[in-house]
Design a protein around this nucleic acid. Structure first.
Lengths: 124, 124
DNA sequence: CTGGATCCTATGGGATACTG
DNA sequence: CAGTATCCCATAGGATCCAG
C-alpha cells in the first residue's frame, strides 16, 4: 500500500469483484426481491406482485428469471390447472441475506426515507 | 411470522429500508467509487478518472456530488492554481465499507467474472 | 394463475469539446 | 486540473393486453 505509487496500482477494471456485484445488482428490484423472498419464504408469482405492487409483471418475471439463472432463486412449477409456481431462495441465495440485511439496516439508520420511491436521479 | 396471514403482511412499499438503499445505490458507479476511495484513500478527480477509466467525467462528477450530498464522501477544494480538489470517505462513508467488502467478497466467491463489463441486461 | 408480447418513455450513462 | 455544457443513445423499466 505504501511502497507502490498510486498511479501504478490504479485501474480496477479487470478482476474487481465489486464490479461483478454491480453488474448483477445495480438494478431496481433484485435485492428487494431477495429480501422479500427471505422474509416471506415460499411465494407465488402473484404474491410477489402484491408484495411489490409497483413492479410490472414483465419486469418481475424477468428479474426472477435472472435470479434463477444466477442460482439465487429457485422456481418450482406444479403441473396443475390453473398453474402454480412457487419461488424461494436457494442455499446460495440465503448466503446473501445477512449482507443484504446489514445493508438494509445501514440504510434504515443513515439514509433519508424515500417513501418507497425508487426512482432516484443520480446525475444531471 | 406465523400468526399473521401472508397477504396481510404484504406490501413493502412504505418504510422498507432496502428501498432507500436501492434508491441510492442501484446505479453503475456509487458502490465502486466508495470501495475505490476506501482502497486508495484521498484521491483527486483525475486519479479517480484513471482508477475507473470507463467512467466519463460528467458522470463521475455527478456521482461524487450525490455521494457528497448523502454525506458519504468529502470534497475538499484547495484555492490553488491550477485548482486541486481532493475526495475521500467521511466517517459515515467508512461505516458502509465493511458491508461493501462483504458484498464484494461474496461476489468474488459466487458470481461469474464479468471482466469489468458493468452493462448487464436483466430483463428482456 | 403465470407470465409472454407489444409498445412506449424516462433517464442513466457515454463521448467530446470546452472553460476558469 | 477539475470539472461543465452539449448532444446522443441504449435500455431498464412501465402499462396494457393477451394466452396457455
Amino acid at each position: 500500500m505504501e511502497d507502490v505509487k498510486k498511479s501504478e496500482k490504479y485501474s480496477c477494471v479487470a478482476t474487481c469483484p465489486m464490479r461483478n456485484v454491480i453488474a448483477h445488482f445495480a438494478n431496481k428490484w433484485s435485492m428487494l426481491l431477495l429480501v422479500i423472498l427471505d422474509e416471506f419464504g415460499v411465494m407465488r408469482f402473484n404474491e410477489l406482485s402484491r408484495a411489490i405492487p409497483d413492479i410490472s409483471p414483465k419486469v418481475l418475471s424477468g428479474h426472477l428469471k435472472t435470479l434463477e439463472a444466477i442460482g439465487l432463486v429457485r422456481r418450482v412449477l406444479y403441473a396443475e390447472v390453473p398453474p402454480r409456481v412457487e419461488y424461494d431462495l436457494t442455499g446460495l441465495g440465503m448466503t446473501l441475506i445477512p449482507i443484504l440485511d446489514e445493508l438494509s439496516e445501514w440504510g434504515r439508520e443513515h439514509l433519508e426515507d424515500v417513501s418507497g420511491n425508487l426512482a432516484k436521479k443520480v446525475v444531471d
